[in-house]
């Protein structure tokens, strides 16, 4: 069994910063990641609000830079594997990573969020076959075609702007009569030219077997339904926490996010949480990085003070 002083779950911005700070404190640290470092940055086209990049930076470029920063620390190991269990056992925390046990004295949970689903039949089957959560990755396949986008927040409008430059017509589907995205994005999308606003509308069915062939739209004001023939539907209706491995006794808010104090301490001794997984107001790369640094400081104190939580 592998033993570490600290284990960080998830290598998005929060986890990378937490691991970096722990490594610099000299703590023997494992950074656990189920696919590849970067988190949601890998699905973000352009980051315009991260300080130090006045001209903006591509999500994957920032992800590359963050992971490059981890490379020179001998006491830090990047472990590729999915965490399926976390439990306290005496003074230790035990993690199951791809079926193997890993022991740590403290754990920082940075597992982040995933895209919320529509909750419609066929959704899992059609994901990647017309249904998408990444305009940057998949927009290319709908060049010159008609597509739909669902959502009304910053993500939906930002991704729509990117998509509108390559598709023939974009139907922006939103259940309310106004967008909650920043005015900057709303103004840009309204002047895009090929964007059809589908206000007060929801998607009620997905059609297609091997690939999406169309959707049913329901008009909330009249109750009428109509078929919209789109081969691509991009869904940005918010996020939900990624927590399949969490012990039941950990304190979470009513949406499932982990509750911490100002030092990122969760309700189980030795367990900290940082980044988007944490119950908080603002989920940004810069706040994830800040959480990561704070959690690493608190975890280091916990180790130095003989596990006083």
């Amino acid at each position: 069994m592998k033993r570490f002083e600290a284990a960080v779950i998830g290598a998005g911005p929060a986890g990378i910063v937490a691991a970096l700070y722990l490594a610099r404190f000299g703590v023997k640290t494992a950074l656990l990641e189920k696919s590849a470092p970067g988190g949601l940055l890998l699905q973000t086209f352009e980051v315009e609000n991260y300080p130090g990049f006045p001209k903006g930076v591509k999500g994957y470029e920032l992800a590359d830079l963050l992971s490059e920063h981890l490379q020179s620390y001998a006491n830090l190991s990047l472990v590729i594997g999915g965490v399926t269990e976390l439990r306290r056992e005496g003074k230790s925390l035990m993690l199951k990573v791809d079926g193997e046990l890993l022991e740590a004295e403290c754990v920082i949970i940075c597992s982040g969020v995933g895209y919320r689903k529509l909750g419609l039949p066929g959704e899992d089957r059609l994901l990647g076959k017309g249904l998408s959560h990444c305009a940057m990755c998949d927009g290319h396949f709908f060049r010159g075609q008609k597509v739909g986008v669902v959502g009304g927040g910053n993500s939906a409008l930002e991704e729509s702007l990117h998509l509108s430059k390559m598709v023939s017509e974009l139907h922006l589907i939103h259940r309310r009569d106004a967008f909650r995205a920043a005015p900057l994005y709303v103004d840009r999308i309204k002047s895009a030219g090929n964007v059809v606003m589908e206000y007060n509308s929801v998607v009620t069915a997905l059609h297609g077997d091997d690939g999406l062939e169309g959707i049913t739209l329901k008009r909330l004001t009249t109750g009428e339904e109509e078929f919209l023939p789109v081969r691509g539907l991009f869904v940005f209706i918010g996020f939900e926490p990624v927590v399949p491995f969490l012990p039941e006794e950990i304190g979470r808010d009513d949406r499932g996010f982990i509750i911490t104090d100002a030092e990122m301490r969760a309700s189980i001794p030795g367990v900290f949480a940082a980044g988007d997984i944490r119950s908080k107001l603002c989920r940004q790369i810069v706040t994830a990085a800040g959480d990561g640094a704070t959690a690493a400081h608190a975890a280091n104190s916990y180790l130095e003070q003989g596990h006083a939580h």
Binding site: S35, A36, P37, L42, Q43, A63, D64, M136, C137
Partner: peptide, 13 residues
């Protein structure tokens, strides 16, 4: 494709 972030993550694998 070069412009796809998740693809770059899979590349080394």
């Amino acid at each position: 494709a070069p412009w796809c972030g998740p693809c770059r993550a899979v590349g080394p694998v």
